[in-house]
């Protein structure tokens, strides 16, 4: 859309250059608000059911401190590298964007790999979705986050292909920026999972 009339106070960044970009970024923030509600519902459900283990394993029996600490570090670091990628994007440094975004995705994939092996290990110990209300809540809450991470990895990869094809235009920058917002959001959700599920589960 005509980029002539950039409202006052709009940062002079590539992703905000067009009317469409500004609308979409604002719209995405609103979408994230809806996502907050979605995860809040899952958290509420999980917390209600957390002690209903029905004789099955409890969080204390299952959770491995080392594993979920590594998962947390991977995701936190990826959020940091994702931020670096955004900075490079604003400098117009395509190569920098690729370096940091691919690092981000690799860290995300590492996180995902660990989470999958964690789930597999639980299932092998006999702790499945069907075992108890607690485990239903656990798998669905943590699994939904994991699904979001998966979507994020695929999505940002596709955006990177578009950046490779078209360079850093206002449109690709907007897509990168929104992908980054999403990634940071997943990081924030994980911090809550880390606290409400893993740390609380150990007590």
């Amino acid at each position: 859309m005509a980029s002539s009339s950039v409202p006052k106070g709009t940062p002079n960044f590539p992703e905000y250059q067009t009317e469409e970009g500004r609308l979409k970024i604002f719209g995405f923030w609103v979408f994230l608000a809806a996502e907050v509600v979605l995860f809040s519902t899952l958290f509420a459900t999980y917390l209600v059911l957390a002690d209903r283990t029905a004789g099955g394993p409890t969080g204390k029996d299952l959770f491995e401190v080392k594993d979920f600490m590594i998962e947390t570090m991977l995701l936190l670091t990826s959020s940091f590298t994702c931020g670096l990628a955004t900075l490079e994007m604003r400098k117009g440094n395509k190569k920098g964007v690729f370096i940091w975004m691919i690092t981000t995705l690799l860290l995300g994939a590492g996180f995902l790999g660990m989470e999958i092996s964690e789930f597999v290990a639980y299932v092998n110990e006999g702790a499945t979705l069907q075992t108890s209300a607690f485990l239903s809540g656990f798998f669905v809450l943590v699994g939904t986050h994991g699904l979001h991470v998966t979507v994020g990895i695929i999505w940002i990869s596709l955006v990177l292909i578009q950046v490779a094809q078209r360079g850093l235009t206002p449109t690709t920058c907007r897509k990168l920026f929104i992908g980054g917002l999403y990634w940071h959001f997943l990081d924030v959700v994980w911090i809550f999972i880390f606290t409400a599920v893993y740390l609380t589960g150990l007590i």
Binding site: T45, R52, A133, S136
Partner: peptide
């Protein structure tokens, strides 16, 4: 959540295994 209960045997709302119909 109810889909998980019905299709995949989860226990969010079941009477048994700690599920909570009131939820």
């Amino acid at each position: 959540l109810l889909t998980f209960d019905r299709l995949f045997g989860a226990h969010f709302f079941t009477i048994d295994a700690g599920g909570m119909p009131m939820m």
